[in-house]
Amino acid sequence: MSRFFAPVIAIVAGLLVLVGYFFPTNSLAALRMIIVQWAVILAGAAIFVGVLNLLSVHVKKIGNKEKGRGYSLLLIISLLITFVLGMVLGPNNPIMTNIFNAIILPVETSLMAVMAVTLIYAGIRLLRHRNDLMAIIFLLTALVVMLGSAPLPFYEIPLVGSYIRPKIISIFASSGARGILLGVALGTLLTGLRILIGADRPYGGK
């Protein structure tokens, strides 16, 4: 039964939101807002299910004595402590803010720093992977743009920062980016339409 109702509900809700966007009459706009608010509430409830999924994955990992189970235990303990503190103190309490500012933020920032090193290494490795003209152009362009942007210690290379880099960014990079984004936008549009007409159902059923 759900295999019949799920697509019907999804298609009707999707069409109402789309029509409400293009023809924002009072009743359609209100209906659109209600459906979007329901979606937000459902997404909130989904986070709870997601956290349970995360817990079950790591409990299973500990139970099966898999590699990295120590980290899984640490994750579960941290999750439970944060959850209990959040429930008791509320999300705006200074302790909760400190947990975010002193633990989560620095860890994510350090991952960003690792990312920078990873990219330099990947750049060096690129020519080994893909020894073609496009890879060489990619690396040379990246080098010129970096030389044009970075504050150099002694003197600036003539023309690179003042002429070549702005030309690369305003002509080649922006026109290429627009082309790529147009392609992505068309892909997004058709994926949305496939789902809207029920031809593609990421919510189950076939």
Binding site: A122, L126, V184, L186
Partner: peptide, 22 residues
């Protein structure tokens, strides 16, 4: 776009632009 640039450098088989939807 930033992710595509990163993948062009680091991934074995990167897909660019609308190839993702293909």
């Amino acid at each position: 776009l930033p992710a595509q640039a990163v993948l062009y450098v680091s991934a074995q088989e990167p897909l660019i632009g609308e190839e993702l939807f293909a």
